[in-house]
Amino acid sequence: MSKIVRKIRPSEYWRIGEHESYFSDMSLMGLHLHKIGTHFIHFKKGEPNRIEYRMEVTKKKSISYEQIDLYEENGWEHVTSYQYFHVFSSPEESNAPEIHTDPAEQAYTLQQLSKILLVNLIAMSLIVPLSIGLLSATWFLDGTPVLRLVEGRMIQQSIMGIILLYYVYYSIGAARAIRSLKRDLKEGKAINHHAPWQNSLHKNSVLPFIFFGVALVSTILPVMQLIKMDTYTLPQEDIGLPIVRLADIEQNPLLKRDEYYIDEVDWANRYSTNWGIFAPVQYEVDESGIVEDKVWLDDGSTYSPTITSKVYKLTFQSLVEPLISDLIKWHSYEKEMDLYIERKHATLDKLMVYEENGMKKIVAAKGDVVMYVRYIGYAEFDLIIENIAQKLATSAEK
Results as ranks from 00 to 15, higher is better:
2 S>Q: 12
4 I>D: 15
6 R>T: 10
9 R>W: 11
12 E>R: 11
17 G>P: 07
20 E>S: 09
27 S>H: 04
28 L>D: 11
31 L>Y: 09
38 T>S: 12
46 G>I: 02
47 E>A: 08
47 E>D: 13
48 P>N: 11
48 P>E: 12
51 I>C: 00
54 R>V: 12
61 K>A: 06
67 Q>G: 00
67 Q>H: 07
67 Q>L: 07
74 N>M: 07
76 W>Y: 06
76 W>V: 02
77 E>Q: 14
81 S>W: 05
81 S>E: 09
82 Y>N: 08
84 Y>P: 01
94 S>C: 05
98 E>R: 13
106 Q>S: 08
108 Y>K: 15
110 L>Q: 05
110 L>F: 15
117 L>P: 00
122 I>A: 02
127 I>E: 09
128 V>T: 13
132 I>H: 05
139 W>Q: 09
147 L>W: 08
148 R>K: 12
150 V>A: 03
162 I>E: 00
164 L>W: 07
164 L>G: 01
168 V>G: 01
170 Y>S: 07
171 S>L: 14
172 I>L: 10
179 R>L: 06
182 K>D: 02
183 R>L: 07
183 R>G: 07
183 R>W: 14
192 N>F: 05
194 H>E: 11
204 N>F: 12
205 S>Y: 04
208 P>M: 08
208 P>D: 13
220 I>W: 08
223 V>H: 06
237 E>R: 05
237 E>F: 01
237 E>T: 07
243 I>N: 02
243 I>Q: 02
244 V>R: 05
245 R>C: 03
257 R>E: 10
262 I>A: 14
263 D>H: 08
263 D>P: 01
265 V>T: 13
268 A>K: 04
270 R>L: 03
272 S>T: 11
272 S>A: 11
276 G>P: 02
277 I>W: 09
279 A>E: 04
281 V>H: 10
290 I>R: 10
291 V>Y: 06
293 D>Y: 10
298 D>L: 03
298 D>M: 01
303 Y>K: 09
303 Y>P: 01
308 T>R: 14
309 S>D: 12
311 V>S: 00
313 K>D: 13
314 L>K: 01
316 F>D: 10
317 Q>N: 14
319 L>S: 04
322 P>G: 08
325 S>P: 01
328 I>A: 01
332 S>P: 01
336 E>F: 03
339 L>I: 00
344 K>R: 12
349 D>Y: 10
352 M>V: 00
357 N>R: 15
361 K>N: 06
362 I>Q: 04
363 V>A: 05
364 A>M: 00
365 A>P: 02
379 A>Q: 05
380 E>D: 13
381 F>S: 13
382 D>F: 08
384 I>S: 02
388 I>K: 04
390 Q>I: 10
397 E>G: 13
